[in-house]
């Protein structure tokens, strides 16, 4: 390993978070008060799909600098928001919107019983 910034404890926490929760959303702000249009868009997509937001584990990266930087490395994804469903990384806002429009998201959510 040439270069690694994410701490072992953060990695372990993230592993547990995405495994234990059906849907995990790393975002800027909270579902009630999103702090960025991209994060808001993902919350609205979940609402449009009828996903119970109380079942979506959301983490506000603006409150935790280590999390904000760490999650990018963890997912190998350079931007926030980030969505995990059943432990699997799905993508950011563009992909969620893309899947929402194509119907793939509905299919995935139904398949996963969400």
């Amino acid at each position: 390993i040439l270069c690694r910034y994410i701490s072992d404890s953060l990695k372990k926490t993230l592993d547990e978070t995405v495994q234990k929760n059906d849907v995990v959303l790393f975002m800027k702000g909270t579902p009630e008060i999103p702090q960025c249009g991209f994060s808001r868009a993902v919350v609205q997509i979940f609402q449009a799909q009828g996903v119970d937001l109380s079942k979506v584990k959301t983490l506000n990266v603006l409150e935790d600098h280590e999390l904000r930087e760490g999650v990018k490395e963890y997912s190998q994804w350079p931007t926030v928001p980030q969505v995990y469903i059943k432990g699997e990384f799905i993508g950011g806002c563009d992909i969620m919107l893309n899947m929402h429009q194509s119907g793939d998201l509905e299919e995935l959510l139904l398949k996963q019983g969400l």
Binding site: Q76, W77, P78, F89, I90, G91, G92, D94, I95, N98, M99
Partner: peptide, 10 residues
């Protein structure tokens, strides 16, 4: 897949 494409771009 979309995810793979976006990863290439990223």
């Amino acid at each position: 897949t979309v995810l793979q494409k976006h990863r290439l771009v990223n």
